[in-house]
Design a protein around this nucleic acid. Sequence first.
RNA 1: ACGACCGUAGCUCAGUUGGUUAGAGCACUACCUUGACAUGGUAGGGGUCGGUGGUUCGAAUCCACUCGGUCGUACCA
Length: 885
Amino acid sequence: MIPPPNVTGSLHMGHAFQDTVMDTLIRHQRMRGKNTLWQPGTDHAGIATQMVVERRLAAEGKSRHDVGREKFIDEIWKWKEESGGTILRQLRRLGASPDWERERFTMDEGLSNAVKEVFVQLHEEGLIYRGKRLVNWDPVLHTAVSDLEVVSEEENGFLWHFNYPLTDGSGHLTVATTRPETMLGDSAVAVHPEDERYADMVGKTITLPLVGREIPIIADDYVDMEFGTGCVKITPAHDFNDYEMGKRHDLPMHNILTVDAKINEHAPEKYRGLDRYDARKQIVADFEALGLLGEIKDHKLMVPRGDRTGSVIEPFLTDQWFVKAAPLAEPAIKAVKDGDIKFVPQQWENTYFEWMNNIQDWCISRQIWWGHRIPAWYDDQGRVYVARDEAEAYTQAKEAGYEGELHQDNDVLDTWFSSALWTFSTLGWPENTKALQTFHPTDVLVTGFDIIFFWVARMIMMTLHFKKEVPFKEIYVHGLVRDGEGQKMSKSKGNVLDPIDLIDGITLEDLVNKRTYGMMQPEKAAKIEKATRKQFADGIPAFGTDAVRFTFASLASNGRDIRFDLNRCEGYRNFCNKIWNATRFALMNIEGHDCGANGGEVELSVADRWIISRLQQVEKDVNQSLANYRLDLASQAMYEFMWNEYCDWYLELTKPILNDENSTEAQLRGTRQTIVRVLETTLRLMHPIMPFITEEIWQKVAPLAGIEGETIMLQAYPEFDESKVDEQAVSEVEWMKTFIMGIRSIRSQMDIAPSKPLTVFIDNASEQDQAFLANNEVFLSRLARLESITLLDGEAPKSATALVGEMKILIPMAGLIDVDAERARLNKEIGKLEKEVARVNGKLSNEKFVSNAPEAVIAKEKEKQAQYESALSNLKDQLVSLEEL
RNA sequence: ACGACCGUAGCUCAGUUGGUUAGAGCACUACCUUGACAUGGUAGGGGUCGGUGGUUCGAAUCCACUCGGUCGUACCA
């Protein structure tokens, strides 16, 4: 499932990350032979899209009302074509491999039918109702918005104290408010029932200043005696808590605002038409003039703002459509509790449960034009007919004995209402299509935590209700993509990156322009420009899609936000380059040569057997990591294998064979075959994360490995094969690596030129050591640059020493190495070892450790003890002989 | 206020049910234009794992408290 991005705008880093994750998973499963579906598409993003198109009209000096509803919607469709195309192009650039022919849009005919069907059915079941309720109202957009679209943040304000005189003239009550203008709609003053200060006033009335309305003093235990004066003004039509209290006490609701949040005709003449904030000032002034204004205190309060417009949201009394959420939530909670749906990481279940357990009815009507129009029709008497289409509505009206005109509800549905049906509506529901049977329920949803409520929870509710099965079995919740400083990326902060710019690169000037163009707050442009010039002094180089994807993958740890680090991206671009170079080497040595594809005797070297063994382990690790959504571990395993094993060691170890005139045809065939086969397999292994480079190289390499096929995308994914593991070869190569690194280390520390061939003697070699030496002399000489390797016979010359287990490698110092330098080096090594020996000895001499720790752990410690001690005594001997000679 | 998550090398991050000398990339130092690769090679330096206390033979890992950060949810007019 691909969470539908808004058709507005373009893909941002969050999408790129998410799409990388999804594409990696889907490519992996596809290669594993599964019948996969990755459902692409976009949602219509009602409010956001409408705003974009309105802004474009505004640029021409027009409003949507000037052009009219139908024309306006045409405009949006035009815009959608353009913008939706951008998104699909970007997806392709990112290497995404969804099922393009199954692309869906939430306003498609099929999806629209599903929406209508769901609406009608839910209405029939009594789960959708219409009612006059207090909703969150955006006075700029003139529409209701859901709780989730309101962001409350702390802001500085004031607490005004007003004196409300009692009607009987026996005094006054002091109330406090943060929104003075709402007093015009007050219906009561409330005190706590047990508050002795006001006990005798309950039941009396107050004459509301400026308005003159007589309102009761009521008792309700919602009131906090400790706060302020202990008296609360109650405005049921403009506050959610007051609304509840109003219902409890059957108070009248005085709506005093217009849709623009201006004072309406229910208020005294003087205030009508004033903006809410102007009215506030006027009312405070008037209270002061009346001598009824008490103190004014600074006060921090939470101010609700619309997430799209940033305007202060008003609780507003209007007719709206609602989904009764509780009955739908119940099975949705159960599905997660029972493990039918699993969150990864699991902790997100808590977030889900918390919201679901306190779920509020969902306001689904929006007073905008762009969206699914509500399938409800009204007659002259205001009776409502909910139907799939107009004809059905007329039939219903007729049956109800109404013959006149019907008009459809002007409102549209919340975008998330259609998104909630995504899993099954995209597969053809309500028809029981083949696709629906094949792909429903789906396996996994990949999404960000920010839409667990908006989308995920609602999808689960709707799907369980209509399909009677879960929409998906697992939900992989990933983190947010932040910038290098850990800041959220946003247009207004000017720190957004376009994934395409990372792929293709961008000049500093273009980047600055992009970030400062069309800003909501142009005054920030200078600051953004400065920051951008500082951070990207040379612009951004082109990293390529594969490097960008690999970076995302490597940062995709379990459920934590990721800081996009350009340096890491650069590192992974270099990795791509490394793959190219390794390929060049491989092709150079393979093209036009016999790689054993057509038979012939094949002899594998120890290096061949080693790399094949290591490959098995990596295949195992990568498969497991991908199955656990650990793309970071998978990518790291690929990186290490390709670079640190295949390139650094294996390819180096092939050179002595390939370049040796004495190599047999069988040996050459074996090595060439292994070079190409391991490369080909590694390409398949890496393909889900790096689709482009692996495909391109694979096209060249696969035929040489004797593999036929159109594309790497449909090749089998590599799987661990126990029979290909050769422990003998692994330990032999490890032995060689220790040997070579020991010499390199001395060379480097003793300042011996890398080009200088060395003569070495071997002392204290076991039978196995001697066998390994005999087998691998060519490898050792070449990789460590040795002139000769001789088993020591008799007295050792003054030497620098490296250890391979018990075996000593002696490098004669004559003319090369300074005694002091070698002494210092040995002492340093000895110091390290002594610390370790002391630690291990301490452990093993601790009775409690020996009696409590598991056998295996003790054995391991003993082994370490022996190793360290032997190495230590060897080095000490060496130190002594250094002094003696 | 409650809850969740995070705090590991200069930076970005791994560290699977407690058990090698805590790892990687980038950055840093030295050396190296050796025929795949300087977007490279080789060898190095660098961390008392936020703090305190506890459980344990043994803690980066488990528990408690605490400090710092991020994010949710709820808020008193």
